[in-house]
Design a protein around this nucleic acid. Structure first.
Length: 241
DNA sequence: AATGATTAGGGCAGGTTTTA
DNA sequence: TAAAACCTGCCCTAATCATT
């Protein structure tokens, strides 16, 4: 494509639309009127021969083409900004950036106090926005790719198959544990997997259907657990023990 | 009905062409 | 080379249309 034929401000419009998923909000973000943003979108559509964004509840949703373009647009604009800013390294002490972290309430409960202290100490202008993972063991690749989340923290068994734009790092290792109240009959002996499956219990499950990774593992052993409560909240499950 | 996207028409800034 | 005239494209407001 001939870049001379492209108004590079359209990339800013694209970025704002990817972030806001709403033409009016994207316009406000760039200090434009809503029709001006609509017009920019129309020019992008003509340029790329794709609708890019289609109407959806609450605004617009990106087409697969727009989603594929998103990482490149973000990276390109980031390079422009860095070039124009004189290639400044990230400086926590002067940054006013908002970091969006997708994680479980369990990880949030464990990490948030430490994170908050570190931010207060080293990056007083930085804000942290925690958001819940949509699924417990599934890497939110789309959210990361679209910039809806900067990082995701959790146990992601299939993360190794993530695309190249996703950077993976082991930050901690944990074991699954069974929690029960003091004095529970099962606490007096070594818990077998059969005991576990047979005992009425609560579990953390994010999906609408109460069927997760552990159920798959049990099924492989010919077992089915006696699940009485499925909740997306670790703290709720702990509270019911 | 409310919210949000698109269209129409006019103004303005910046670029191009013409002319002295 | 610089100034004037002209052209093009973007943005604005207002009105209308579409979707939820």
């Amino acid at each position: 494509m001939n870049l001379q034929a492209v108004d590079l401000n359209l990339l800013l419009a694209m970025e704002a639309l990817l972030e806001e998923r709403n033409v009016s909000r994207a316009a406000r973000r760039l200090g434009l009127s809503q029709p001006a943003m609509s017009n920019a979108l129309a020019r992008l559509r003509g340029l790329l021969n794709d609708p890019l964004f289609v109407r959806a509840p609450g605004g617009v949703a990106p087409t697969p083409r727009a989603e594929r373009m998103a990482p490149g647009v973000r990276a390109g604009l980031e390079q422009f900004r860095r070039a124009l800013d004189g290639v400044r390294e990230f400086d926590p002490s002067s940054s006013s950036r908002t970091f969006r972290i997708a994680l479980s309430d369990h990880a949030e409960w464990l990490l948030a106090p430490h994170l908050l202290r570190a931010v207060e100490r080293e990056a007083p202008g930085v804000r942290v926005q925690c958001k819940r993972l949509d699924a417990l063991f599934v890497l939110p690749e789309a959210e990361l790719r679209m910039g809806a989340a900067d990082i995701a923290i959790g146990f992601f068994p299939d993360a190794r198959t993530a695309d190249e734009s996703t950077r993976l790092e082991t930050v901690a290792e944990e074991e699954h544990v069974v929690v029960m109240r003091r004095g529970h009959p099962l606490s007096r002996r070594t818990l077998t997997i059969e005991d576990y499956a047979a005992a009425p219990h609560a579990a953390v499950i994010y999906r609408p259907e109460p069927w997760g990774l552990i159920d798959q593992e049990l099924a492989a052993r010919g077992l089915r657990r006696n699940l009485r409560l499925a909740s997306p909240h670790f703290l709720t499950v702990l509270h019911t023990a």
